[in-house]
Design a protein around this nucleic acid. Structure first.
Length: 380
RNA sequence: UCCUCGGUAGCUCAAUAGGCAGAGCAAUCGGCUGUUAACCGAUUUGUUGUAGGUUCGAGUCCUACCCGGGGAG
């Protein structure tokens, strides 16, 4: 570890799986692991106030450097005192570099070994980032954890294309590490390699070589999954990745958010997750539940006066019926986004709490098998 | 009573000169995974007011009637 501002303590490791329970300490507080980070791309988790996020027990939020750089601009956020003050969230924040946008907004970007050029999706203006530029931008944003600039290839992608992304991302990790010197910010490198096991391992080796030069990474992201490959393919591939990353640093599986994937990944040794799934699908009327995914738009809920999920302890389930929530969705009332986002985030956060307890009590395996046999398990 | 305009999907409306009746919304269902997403996609519904007529062919032209809006008296 290159800085004393950050400390990672694994308090228990499951005996039969690779699940870990612990704490990652940052300047803005502790992050328990395993944990889920709600996504707040534009410095807001859509539809929710920071007070609601605090009440949900959120440890850490994710924001996006690409989008915030374009609007409102990093200068304003720096002037406000950084992201924490700007958005009034005093707990940990992680910013994503914009690497995923290199994938998801490929039409507007051009990549080369030295960096990325792109046209603003807001006004078409031209921009260019090197890894060093990206570190400066994320430094101005001031998150506790920042991600290296990386290249996230699509799926499917040719071996050669993914290999290029692996090598480029590793070189950018090196440059980000050299450029990032603020001890208040942890830098996470990102593993790539798609579904090619040899490239995943090559990526890890390249990152560990940089790590071994003295200026280590405070954690590791695992990127390039959940971009369209079948779930089983991801889990099979991930099995050889999480375990190969250093045990003394947190492992963050980027962009994965369905409940079963979270638990299976935790069993493989993953500590952190983020995903738009709970909040996006909530806004669209779809919810996690002890009965599995429910689409509240379905007509069968029209006169269902039962709680959303009778087994859920969230504020939404405590007070509102399925029929009322469906009415809000069908009427396009913005309250539906609020109430269902609260429910879905609570669901994943509670799942993570239960996983932590299970690991700490050395019974994660049975916890996982109970899940696999429950109606809540996701359909794949 | 007369004149006039109109009647097409649950709703609002399209449909060249007669030539396979179709859009939006609604409804029903599906999708969403480091957010360009209060989004995207699929599907369903018709005695074209009624009864006749002309025509190879009528939502469209002709006749009568029914219903509604407007106007005149």
């Amino acid at each position: 570890m290159s800085s004393s501002s950050f400390e990672f303590a694994v308090q228990a490791t499951d005996k039969t799986t690779h699940a870990r329970w612990g704490v990652f300490s940052t300047p803005h507080g502790q992050i328990s692991i395993p944990n889920f980070m709600p996504v707040g791309t534009h410095a807001t988790v859509k539809a929710l106030t920071v007070e609601q996020l605090e009440q949900l027990g959120v440890d850490v939020l994710l924001a996006n450097a690409y989008h915030l750089y374009l609007r409102p601009g990093t200068a304003l956020i720096a002037k406000a005192g950084g992201l924490h003050d700007f958005m009034n969230w005093q707990r940990p924040i992680l910013t994503d570099s914009g690497g995923f946008q290199i994938f998801s907004l490929a039409d507007t970007l051009k990549l080369d070994d030295d960096g990325v050029s792109f046209a603003s999706i807001i006004d078409g203006s031209r921009h260019r980032w090197t890894p060093e530029d990206n570190m400066r931008i994320q430094n101005e944003l001031g998150a506790d954890i920042i991600m290296q600039l990386d290249e996230c290839p699509p799926y499917p992608a040719e071996h050669g294309q993914v290999a290029t992304a692996v090598r480029r991302s590793a070189d950018w990790a090196r440059r980000c590490r050299l450029a990032q010197t603020d001890s208040r910010q942890a830098l996470f490198a990102i593993n790539q390699g798609g579904v090619y096991n040899d490239l995943r391992q090559e990526s890890i080796q390249r990152l560990l070589e940089i790590d071994a030069t003295g200026a280590g990474f405070e954690g590791f992201g695992i990127g390039g999954y959940s971009v369209g490959e079948p779930h089983e393919v991801m889990i099979d591939s991930l099995a050889g990745v999480a375990d190969a990353l250093p045990a003394d640093r947190p492992r963050y599986l980027m962009g994965v958010g369905n409940p079963t994937s979270l638990l299976r990944s935790i069993a493989l040794g993953v500590d952190l997750f983020d995903c738009v799934l709970p909040t996006r699908t909530a806004r669209m009327g779809s919810v996690f539940s002890s009965e599995g995914r429910l689409n509240l738009r379905n007509a069968r809920f029209a006169d269902d006066l039962n709680p959303l999920d009778p087994q859920c302890s969230c504020p939404t389930c405590a007070k509102y019926s399925r029929a009322y929530l469906r009415h809000l969705i069908m009427s396009r009332e913005i309250l539906s986004s609020v109430l269902l986002s609260i429910h879905n985030l609570h669901y994943l956060l509670e799942l993570m709490r239960q996983a932590r307890i299970a690991i700490s009590e050395a019974r994660f395996s049975s916890f996982l098998s109970d899940w696999e046999n429950s109606p809540a398990v996701d359909d794949f």
